[in-house]
Design a protein around this nucleic acid. Sequence first.
DNA 1: TCTGGGGTCCTAGGACCC
DNA 2: TCTGGGGTCCTAGGACCC
Length: 400
Amino acid sequence: LIGRPLVILSNNDGCIVARSAEAKALGIPMGAPAFHYRELFQRQKVIALSSNYILYGDMSHRVMSTLEQFGHPVDVYSIDEAFLSLPLLPPSELMEIGTHIRQTIKQWLGLPIAIGIAATQTLAKAANKIAKKNKQGVMTLTEENILDTHLAELLVEDIWGIGRGHSATLHKKGITTALQLKNCDDLWIKKQCGVQTLRTVWELRGIVCSQEEDKNALSKSLISSRSFTKPLLTLSELNEAIATFASIAGEKLRAEKACAGFVSVFLASSPFNTQQPYYSNAIHIRLPSPSAYTPDLILAAQNGLKNIFKQGIAYKKAGICLGEIIPEFGMQLDLWTPLEKLDKKRVLMEKIDALNQKWGKKSIFYAAEGVNPSWKPQHSRSSPHYTTSWKDLIKANLNN
DNA sequence: TCTGGGGTCCTAGGACCC
DNA sequence: TCTGGGGTCCTAGGACCC
């Protein structure tokens, strides 16, 4: 696939969510619906693949654990990004470190990566942008005069932390480049764009404003939701979908060794359908006591669903959100449930999670989820699970 | 015909307290 | 005729990120 225009599609092969440089060059925008571009795909021989989160997750894990081996503190920021804290060294030595890391990842995993090195995360992201385009794939932006030359060429909308809204505000004021933003008035920025943007500005000046992420921190909320390939019409279908979401969310919750205090359920018709008025609604349900027991979550979620479900609407999307997440062992018990019962529930969940881990997702599942759900997201053109499924292992042909 | 899924933080305004 | 000063908590909505 190297050198070819390639796009990755979202669930149901709906939207374009990632593009190779070659695809970007064809003018294919991020987030666009795939069907708008089908003709262009054919004409330009663009490869469009379904997303394969299992493969990406596994490769990401391999990259991150390789990064750990260089002895610099690693802060994993997203599935494909990490920040490493390097020692204070002259630029040439930093270049050397970057080049070595890049070569190692390339050799061990076959993945090309880009590395940007600078005083703050915001500047490192800017350096990375440049590194993506140069031959070495590594860029250091540690010297003031070189830095400012590059910031003068960086547009405000391309700075990490400056989105559509703040870009518009800045453009109106005549601020279009990162260098201009770096030199702008603090009070004005704070007033117009808020404190987060002010932090971004300070980071452009080389002052560290980002805080170390607490790796043990629990999620504040957990969402499980999907769009349906074909709209769902009945309460019983939605009940199955909601039960599935509750079960997925429960697994995530237990992986964090945590409990949730409330469940909220939401559903919506298609915002694009002009034949039908748009309907969307949500409801919060407080759990009698915090729980990570999937049947509790399913029960609460389905009870909520009853209240927001309206007959005669074609539902295109639904989901649940867990909130008030607290550590499993810090939880306030309710007065009436005997401890042994809680313990039984916990053990049952442990066993189920272990079975599904060992034998694959949904080896054992709740009947409420339905046996053959019609709404399962489609991935019609997925790449193989090269690294996580025996049957998808790459075969070496020894006769050649 | 077909339009993703998951998060975080901040702010303004309202309700309440003394 | 005149009507204080200091807080907290909650929520919705908006901004941003991947």
